[in-house]
Nucleic acid binder design. Sequence first.
DNA 1: ATGAAAGCGCTAACAT
DNA 2: ATGTTAGCGCTTTCAT
Lengths: 352, 352
Amino acid sequence: MTTKLHRATIRDVAERATVSVATVSRVLNGSERVTGATAESVRLAAEQLGFRLNSIGRNLRSTKTQTIGVILPTLTHPVFADCLQAIEIAASAAGYSVTIATTSYDPANEEAASERLLRNRVDGLILTVANANKSKLLEKLDRESKPYVLVYNEPTGAAKHRPSVGVDNRLAAKQITEHIIAAGHRNLRMISGPFAQSDRARSRARGFADAVAHAKLELTEPLQVDFMRTDVRAQLFEAMSARPAPTAFFCSSDQLAMRAMHSLRSLGFRVPDDVSVAGFDGISLGEWLTPALTTVVQPTHEIADTAFGLLKSLIDGERHLGSARLHHTLRIGGTVAQPTTTLIHPTQKGTL
Amino acid sequence: MTTKLHRATIRDVAERATVSVATVSRVLNGSERVTGATAESVRLAAEQLGFRLNSIGRNLRSTKTQTIGVILPTLTHPVFADCLQAIEIAASAAGYSVTIATTSYDPANEEAASERLLRNRVDGLILTVANANKSKLLEKLDRESKPYVLVYNEPTGAAKHRPSVGVDNRLAAKQITEHIIAAGHRNLRMISGPFAQSDRARSRARGFADAVAHAKLELTEPLQVDFMRTDVRAQLFEAMSARPAPTAFFCSSDQLAMRAMHSLRSLGFRVPDDVSVAGFDGISLGEWLTPALTTVVQPTHEIADTAFGLLKSLIDGERHLGSARLHHTLRIGGTVAQPTTTLIHPTQKGTL
DNA sequence: ATGAAAGCGCTAACAT
DNA sequence: ATGTTAGCGCTTTCAT
């Protein structure tokens, strides 16, 4: 055990095993035909020297880094955090490292983040962008034919060729909205994150509108809430002041749903007795609420695995792999109930 | 715009700008004295060529990667996810990339994860290990004098020299337990994650015991719950069958608290009317519950910033920087209330 | 089956 | 202020 153990290079190993560096490299990579005896002596020498392969040298030479980049809007959102975790597990199982970047939903950050990753020569990227149809970053990636797979984004139109993995947001939103309507609600309102930050939010709003239109109900404008910034409570107070007042809210994410429920309750409305709330995502915390949150469950783990698998194929040179729409499920909790028909007009119970 | 834009190397730039590669390298690094004119021509050439620095080459030569590794038990836990996000923000602001690894609380994975990171020659590591006092990984890092900073871990005894950032878990646990006792509870029970997986859990259990002892109450064994695996509900059913039955639970994490509340409620106990619950961590979701979760708030963001700052100093060669205990705060929600004194014996309300 | 040698893209002495 | 040159640690023809 010398002081600078890991400074041992492939060359040191070669000397100690009295073979050439080429041979050492061969046994290190398992590849090539090397005599069992020499291989063993190399392994022994490596162990004795405390040798640790320096990936940098390998990467420089092979122009492959066995590293993928992951660019996500935030890790504060459990969906993204869980997804990243699943990606990391899949990647490391395949011998890949993962380098991350977050954008705070800001396309400007997408640029800086991607450049950093690209300078590091990641072999490919898994990412969620603000808008998959119109993205400088994606255009760059396309131009440079750098492998990437989108998660959660649903590119459409001219961008439809972009590889992506996620659920059918519009359909899922339509279905959960139908569930709300089936419970007897006639005055629904959607609460959404800022459309500019999320094409998912837009798709979900479309699905909501689909269901509302199909039931021949009146469609109101989604309440756009900048989650981290705005006073959700004030916005909800106003929303509940409308006549007829909404009896149910469909929220574009579970976090939004939780905040909405909290605000509604603090305004004196009982959930689901006075007003129903449904979410979207299926974060596990939602199950632990009482009553449990009614929501759409996205198969996060599967999305991650599929995305990594796709990316791996792309990296390995396969083409035309297409995208994957995975199955969502409805998780019927207890936050959506029948509207209280006896209520003339839900009196404004709370105050600001 | 040729096909292979980014294949342009520093050498191509040098040729186009009719200077030497050394000069290009100099303007790229901002360092050194280069005439404004030549610098400009180099920048122009680089732009025209769509040149993108290849970090691999730089890293190999400089034996620095401007990359840190982050090893965390999981990202499923919001505390870790939020911390990682804050680390990433701090790191990228300082020009560092971050490569991640998760261990699922399994020390065996710590080994594999760290080797991967170390092969990638990360400049330093930020990590949370199962046991900061007894860790093969930490011993290795010490032996190789690889810079690292622990987060959340609280090394003690012989391991006290290990740089760490976090709160005083024992004190914080003691304080929130005192809060519970001050509400009038006499029969408290702690619910903890597996001690083997978390030295924090052990510290918190000690703090709990401190408060219980100080109030001269009877100390019961913490209920160890393997969160992801065990049937929490069954364990709680049993716990509530004890006589005298506990009237309050202190949970070693907010997630555990949420699961506990869910199980208790499904067993027919009202929280906080029949039984009080407090958590630890201060995840933001806890604030959105109704009633809001009473808990200890760890300054996650600050922990991340401090840890990165410390690591950066270590990487830059400074020594003897010590550790940082950051301030926690109690967040008094509504999940801890006075025990119902009229209750003779809390009758078993639910069934399995 | 193994070795010799070239070179991936860059930085850092050392020259000039 | 700028150029020359020697590698950083590894993989990979091309020989043998």
